[in-house]
């Protein structure tokens, strides 16, 4: 029924499907605000509602993505808007940005290499390997970078989600277990590994945890964007 609707009146259908997506997301976001569970992630909930919806109404992914073009177009200005937190962190980190950049560059390089090699070894699909190696950044930037490097961005979106949940749920305990207890180190580690999801959890511990976590989140996104366009093609050559 909906598929004929899409064929007959494309504009209305596209408004309808976009509105359904927005409404589902808003509902999920409200639920998380109300109950505050980490796993009640709005994106995770929206996708698990919308996938059965598409399967039931027999809309395929191509049709869905064509009809939600507008949301995809808004992604670009949304990423530009992340420049404000970047600017706010400039002031915070100006005393020690050199050390912090060095630490993050090292961590990011290791994690890209490790994930890429593991993925090539276990799954043997280059576009999946690219997607998995870009999973330690905030979702909009991860998706954009994956598309630029011809990876599969839906895998990136999911991998980022899972990495975020792992780090948020187990990260603080793991760090305490290996004897890393300062707000500075915990914040930076969780911000760079689990981005926004981890930061949202850490803020509850202390404001200092949250501040370091958001510094790491934004700085590691910029650094990954600078490192990956030359590191990943290098790794791809290695496996050719």
């Amino acid at each position: 029924m909906l598929t004929t609707f899409i064929a007959n009146s494309p504009i209305l259908a596209s408004i309808f499907i976009t509105l359904i997506t927005i409404a589902t997301y808003q509902l999920a976001a409200r639920c998380q605000q109300k109950w505050q569970y980490i796993w009640l992630n709005p994106m995770l909930i929206s996708i698990s509602i919308l996938v059965p919806f598409l399967l039931l109404t027999e809309i395929n992914y191509q049709q869905y993505s064509d009809n939600t073009q507008i949301l995809n177009l808004l992604l670009e200005p949304a990423i530009v808007a992340l420049g404000l937190p970047l600017y706010q962190q400039f002031k915070q980190i100006r005393f020690y940005w050199r050390e912090m950049t060095a630490i993050l560059v090292l961590g990011i390089t290791v994690v890209i290499v490790v994930s890429f090699i593991l993925a090539m070894w276990m799954i043997k699909a280059p576009e999946i390997a690219v997607a998995l190696s870009l999973k330690s950044v905030t979702t909009p930037i991860g998706i954009t970078l994956t598309e630029q490097l011809f990876g599969d961005s839906s895998i990136t979106a999911f991998a980022i989600l899972i990495a975020g949940l792992f780090g948020a749920l187990l990260g603080p305990q793991w760090l305490s277990f290996i004897g890393i207890n300062s707000a500075k180190a915990q914040g930076l580690a969780i911000g760079s590994a689990s981005h926004v999801i981890g930061t949202a959890v850490l803020v509850r511990k202390s404001a200092e945890h949250g501040a370091y976590s958001s510094v790491a989140l934004i700085l590691s996104a910029v650094l990954t964007a600078l490192i990956s366009p030359w590191l990943i093609p290098l790794l791809q050559q290695l496996f050719n």
Binding site: Y96, E99, M100, I103, L104, L106, G107, I108, V110, V111, V114, S115, L118, A119, M122, I123, L132, K135, S136, I155, A159, I162, A163, F166, G167, G171, W174, L175, I178, I180, S182, K184, A185, Q186, L188, A189, I190, S192, A193, S194, A216
Partner: peptide
């Protein structure tokens, strides 16, 4: 395999960044 890769590389990253920033920052 996907979960193992994501899990292990996330924990490697947590450990490296946590350790280095505790020690050197």
């Amino acid at each position: 395999a996907l979960v193992i890769i994501i899990f292990s590389s996330t924990f490697i990253l947590l450990t490296i960044i946590g350790y280095l920033s505790e020690r050197f920052l």
